[in-house]
Design a protein around this nucleic acid. Structure first.
Lengths: 154, 154
DNA sequence: TGTGTAAGGGTGCATATGCGCCTAATTTCA
DNA sequence: TGAAATTAGGCGCATATGCACCCTTACACA
């Protein structure tokens, strides 16, 4: 590494590709479409999208959350989150919890939501297992690590 | 590796995580949202989304394409592609080419499309350079490689 | 105590995403 | 050559995505 840097001036910033064919945004969006379809086909059996499963799952593991907090957890825009919870609320899977601050809407799982999540879990595990079996468990772990570094770029 | 496989029966399929916190789908969707926003903020200056830039870019590099062919190239659903080209057609950036097969709609860049693409290229390069500088050029190349293996899972 | 500011969230708009179902054109093959 | 199968694409529907702009509530502080 150090040897490379002292080699030539051109190597000071290594390997940045400005070839249009190497667009990181296109690459990640394509992959996201594929994986979403893959997981959605499994979860679709009980009428849940992966994004909806993710939200229910977060609420189960982390307890009631405000729209803003949930948006943060999902690395999602606030307004997107506000709309994403609507079908879940409509179907009685989540509800607004008691509020001390009249501005916030703290969402929590309902009993029906917990039931649906229980039904969804084996389907999600099937999707996860199928994916990791085909892609490779170790590779998947590396990929998740690389993706989390993308998210933490801000 | 071989030593691990003979160690115990449980290690025959190594490292598959069924922990809900390790959802590959959520990980990739979160990252896709971040990266899309990142690139869109750069390209937004001239009123193009990254997805639109990608389509124009493909048409420039690969020539006129049918909806189906374009969908394949973008790893995108056929109907999604059919709708994605609408704003581009409306704004006169692409147009339908001559057809031998009355079923197909072969899309091609217009002169205005080529101009817009020329304007967009420096903005895209800026986004790409910013991203790779912060994420790491080598890491980005590895990430793209890992993502392309996801897409090729089918 | 009034007021400016910050925080939480909603709405309108435009695009993105893909499934199920439909129509039209083409190709295959008996 | 005519019917069946294939191919190309559209449309309705529902959700996903985030920006600009707006309202309300809470808080800090003069």
């Amino acid at each position: 590494m150090k040897a490379m840097r002292t080699k030539t001036k051109q190597n000071q910033i290594p390997a940045i590709s400005l070839d249009p064919a190497d667009c990181n945004c296109l690459a990640i969006r394509q992959a996201a479409r594929q994986v979403t379809q893959f997981y959605d086909r499994h979860l679709g059996v009980i009428g849940l999208r992966t994004s909806q499963y993710s939200i229910l799952s977060k609420l189960l593991r982390l307890g009631p959350q405000s729209i803003n907090a949930l948006a943060m957890l999902m690395a999602m825009d606030r307004t997107t989150t506000g709309r994403a919870i609507r079908p879940l609320e409509r179907d009685g899977l989540i509800e607004v919890a008691a509020r001390d601050d009249a501005r916030t809407r703290v969402m929590q799982l309902t009993a029906a939501g917990r039931v649906r999540l229980k039904e969804a879990q084996p389907l999600w595990r099937e999707a996860q297992r199928d994916f990791e079996t085909r892609y490779g468990g170790g590779e998947a772990a590396s990929l998740r690590e690389a993706l989390s570094r993308v998210v933490s770029l801000h």
